[in-house]
Design a protein around this nucleic acid. Structure first.
Lengths: 346, 346
DNA sequence: CTCTCTTCCGAAAGCGCTTTCGGGCGCAAG
DNA sequence: CTTGCGCCCGAAAGCGCTTTCGGAAGAGAG
């Protein structure tokens, strides 16, 4: 539709082997060649071997377009992200690549940039390209509107769950991540644990806080003050740390809602003469290397296992394409990466 | 080839309109419908209108697979990246998306993870999918081996240039970026400018340093000490800043090879009682928001215009596909983003 | 030796679309 | 009223592959 009326023909390129070449070389018909290469059970082993050898000699690669035509399949999936920076999309993409297996399927990556209209447009473009399925990645863990139940292909939501429980969503376990953080601090012998988090409008902030609170409660320990919600920035981490250290000088650990916040907290603690981790243990979430490594000391952080989220989403999508759809919200556990900002009380 | 022997058929899905439906509804033949929709000049305007209306009523989207079969075109391009974190790929991807125009072409994204073997594999997979062209994105600006001259489709290298001058490469102007940085500091009235950079194994480090040195020389100013090469880390920035302030207490500006280094430098300067920017102006490269914003004060940084690199690469690829290939290395100018870590001497 | 089954292979029919090519029609010129 | 010429349109031939279906060849039973 969008082709120029009379475009010049592309420059001459070396021709590629096609199935008919393979068949001729192997001395069989097209049909037999196709069956042999696709592992259909109607060819003698010896014939199959001959065909395969011919294919290899010609460096034959089947044209997936032509292959998909009769089957209605294309061997491609669409990855629709709303995440500008690729902070979450990239690990998920890599996980998906792993799960599908290199070369088996190809991934179309589209960035909707958080714009619903653009998203709709991309969905149409992807469907037009006859993708076999769609993975939708959000930029935050808050539930998002479903693309709708009547798409012609299966959809899996990753990171941000769909509001529609009939859809399948794969998300990190934020509550569990919060529990994990506190459990580690308790294991380090800390007992006076405060919590500085980010924007309370984010489900991730609230759920991590819930998990942390629950773990403290399980241990019979009171939290140190309320959870301080603010923004996902170092500046907020610095400010909040100042307040905390003034009000609760006896605290011995601070859970931070993100690595950014943790950096600010660590910095302020050090400037106030508190040693990290000896006096105060600090940890963050996300395990964003650029932040955790640059910090003094390097930050312990809860890794949300985004690659695993991607891998699971890809596997689920694959299953759905094969006719085994699931639905509901499935969570992927988090993982603690211990660095120097936490350590046992000596 | 890699299909399971006898897979189950996918679940029933709503059928989509095909060209024959449109033709029937419009009361014309397939051929006419096709020509009408593709703007061929062999249909009466009135007939064309009728066909288009029928297509819209049926929400007809041509099947790009079938469309590409005769033409040998697929309307897809491959984006092959070696950049784990997507630090450079994502902006380039977005630029490419912009340049192609949403929906006109789709982008296959593959991550080779810096592995030549995996790269080769992905190239094969992409060629197998009959992409119309390839954009290869490197993870650093050092020249990289060419994919070879005899690929069946045009290739454009972005960020990392190809070693083969017959290829087309679109890269940021590292030398110009270095000049830009120093020019800004000079405009701020600084005259004793030191330079802390990253790993000297990186062309980006050397070229930025060259540009900076050239700009100083143009102004008739001597550099303050040698360029301190090290690594791309905050820790190195802190260490280097300590050395610099000891040896050259009179310096009034420090150019840093990256935002990470700049953060370390700023931190150490502040701890040593030097005010930034009043006593010492500091700037970095890359304009990585997460780093520039969290710093105290926020960092001035040279933005390499990666989106523009991507857009240019995409346009060049498009031209090559249309039969207008270019070759050689083309640079994209950088852009200064001024924040609080630099300011005129009062 | 004939008949029935298997096993293996090939002819042919699509999949949805584009494009070539030839023919019908209407018009102006002869 | 005939030619000739253009303008539109449709029939049909692919593009490269998969799949159905029927037939040929060989094996075993009667």
């Amino acid at each position: 539709m969008a082709q120029p009326p009379d475009r010049p023909s592309p420059p001459a390129r070396p021709p590629v082997a096609k199935l008919s070449d393979v068949a001729r070389l192997a001395g069989v018909s097209l049909a037999t060649a196709s069956k042999a290469l696709n592992g259909r059970s109607q060819v003698r082993a010896e014939t199959r071997a001959r065909v395969i050898e011919a294919a290899e000699r010609l460096a034959f690669h089947p044209n997936p377009l032509a292959r998909g035509l009769p089957a209605g399949r294309t061997g491609t999936v669409g990855l629709l992200t709303g995440d500008l920076e690729g902070r979450f999309s990239i690990p998920i993409l890599m996980g998906a690549e792993d799960a599908f297996g290199v070369g088996r399927v190809a991934v179309f990556l589209c960035d909707a940039r958080g714009d619903a209209l653009r998203e709709q447009h991309h969905v149409q473009a992807l469907l037009g390209r006859r993708v076999d399925g769609l993975i939708v990645v959000g930029s935050r863990t808050d539930p998002r509107p479903s693309l709708g139940p009547d798409l012609p292909v299966p959809v899996v939501y990753a990171y941000a769950p769909s509001l529609d429980p009939a859809d399948l969503s794969i998300v990190p376990d934020s509550v569990g991540a919060g529990r994990l953080a506190v459990a580690h601090l308790l294991a380090c012998g800390r007992s006076r644990v405060a919590h500085v988090s980010g924007d309370p409008g984010y489900a991730a902030a609230r759920e991590r806080a819930d998990g942390a609170a629950a773990a403290l409660a399980d241990a019979g320990l009171p939290p140190v003050g309320e959870v301080l919600f603010g923004s996902w920035s170092e500046g907020w981490g610095r400010a909040a740390a100042g307040m905390l250290l003034d009000r609760h000088p006896a605290l011995d650990a601070i859970v931070c809602g993100s690595d950014q916040i943790a950096r600010g907290v660590v910095e302020t603690a050090r400037e106030r003469g508190r040693r990290v981790p000896e006096d105060v243990a600090v940890l963050g979430f996300d395990n964003w290397e650029i932040l955790t490594q640059g910090s003094r000391p390097p930050l312990t952080s809860v890794d949300l296992n985004l690659e695993q989220v991607g891998r699971t989403a890809a596997q689920a999508l694959f299953a759905a394409i094969e006719g085994q759809p699931r639905s509901g919200v499935e969570t992927v556990p988090s993982r603690l990466v211990i660095r120097e900002s936490t350590a046992p009380l000596s």
